[in-house]
């Protein structure tokens, strides 16, 4: 049985204009020790998924349907006190801004100790300090800096401390939501290595959320590409990046500037973001899709299998199976 299995999950936000479907019938599985990346542009629902997995959805959000099965229980049904048992202990989160995740008035080690003691009140002092040493070793913070205050840390060290805090209770699943977006590329590189290394060492399940495909590619084995609340393509890192099949994935990769693909840059046409207020079975990407033709109209997209691990959500099976389509 997989560690985490999300089935048919839909999450809506109550807005003045009606229910906005931020997450629309999502399904995915995560095996123990596996890493899964969610990539998509702002408003695609990737952060909402992370929040739902942590039980931290805002007040105006509502899980409309679906199940989140984690270690055999359905997280959707948990009450807030039950969530407090799970959050931090079994599912932990690495937030985007390390500065906000650390309390400036306490030393870093105090804060991490507190995270441990909250979930293991009976832990002995010796065990606690042993665990602290392990954690700081794991994230490469010198033990001498343990008792420092957050402001005495550099940006990268703060993010490491946040990772250590997430790992404190040895969770089965870590959710990292844009953990390096606020950092410089050099520090980002270090932190990404750190996350990957720690994940492989501890065999923790990892869900990594980012708008940056290259960042996701450097950490995760499997990738879900999201568009307008839906997963449009999923596959191993190699499959998604080497032979992207969904037109949106192709657009996303085609417009990504990296040092070695300048010649392949394709500038997509201007597009409006799709309306997520109305329910539709039709393809949400059709308005901006370079490969969309008359055949797409009126049809609903379906999951098309390219390989057992690689699937795309499209109305045009021929196009998906052929590969690069019109491009």
């Amino acid at each position: 049985m997989s560690l985490l299995s999300v089935e048919n999950l839909s999450i809506g936000y109550q807005t003045k204009k009606g229910m906005l479907k931020a997450v629309d019938h999502i399904r995915f599985d995560l095996e123990e020790g596996d890493s899964l990346g969610f990539v998509g542009e702002s408003g695609c629902g990737k952060t909402t998924i992370g929040m739902a997995l942590m039980g931290l959805l805002p007040e105006n959000a509502e899980i409309l349907e679906g199940r989140i099965r984690f270690q055999g229980r359905d997280l959707v049904l948990l009450t807030e006190p039950q969530w407090r048992q799970v959050r931090g202990a079994k599912v932990a989160m690495i937030f985007q801004s390390a500065m906000n995740a650390l309390n400036p008035v306490f030393p870093v080690d105090e804060q991490i100790k507190e995270a441990i003691v909250t979930h293991q009140p009976d832990i002995s002092d010796a065990d606690l300090s042993e665990r602290m040493k392990q954690l700081f070793d794991l994230v490469d913070i010198p033990l001498a800096r343990m008792k420092n205050y957050p402001h005495e840390y550099s940006g990268g060290m703060k993010q490491r401390a946040v990772i250590a805090m997430a790992l404190a209770c040895d969770p089965a699943l870590i959710i990292a939501d844009e953990p390096t977006t606020a950092l410089d590329v050099i520090v980002q590189d270090q932190i990404l290595r750190e996350i990957k290394m720690v994940q492989q060492k501890t065999r923790t399940g990892l869900i990594f959320i980012s708008h940056d495909i290259a960042v996701v590619a450097s950490v995760c084995e499997r990738i879900c590409v999201m568009y307008a609340g839906q997963i449009v393509e999923t596959g191993t890192r190699k499959e998604v990046f080497k032979s992207p099949r969904h037109p949106y994935t192709q657009t996303l990769l085609g417009s990504y500037l990296s040092l070695d693909n300048l010649k392949d840059i394709k500038v997509p046409d201007m597009k409006e973001s799709p309306d997520q207020l109305t329910d539709t079975n039709e393809c949400r990407f059709s308005g901006a899709c370079p490969s969309c033709d008359r055949k797409c109209a009126g049809r609903s997209p379906e999951w098309i299998e390219i390989s057992p691990t690689h699937q795309a959500f499209c109305c045009n099976p021929g196009l998906i199976r052929r590969g690069h389509g019109k491009n």
Binding site: A214, V215, S218, F241, L259, D264
Partner: peptide, 14 residues
């Protein structure tokens, strides 16, 4: 050199 080295890219090329 360091900046170029840490620039995220696709390991598997395209």
């Amino acid at each position: 050199k360091k900046l170029i080295k840490v620039q995220p890219g696709f390991k598997y090329g395209r």
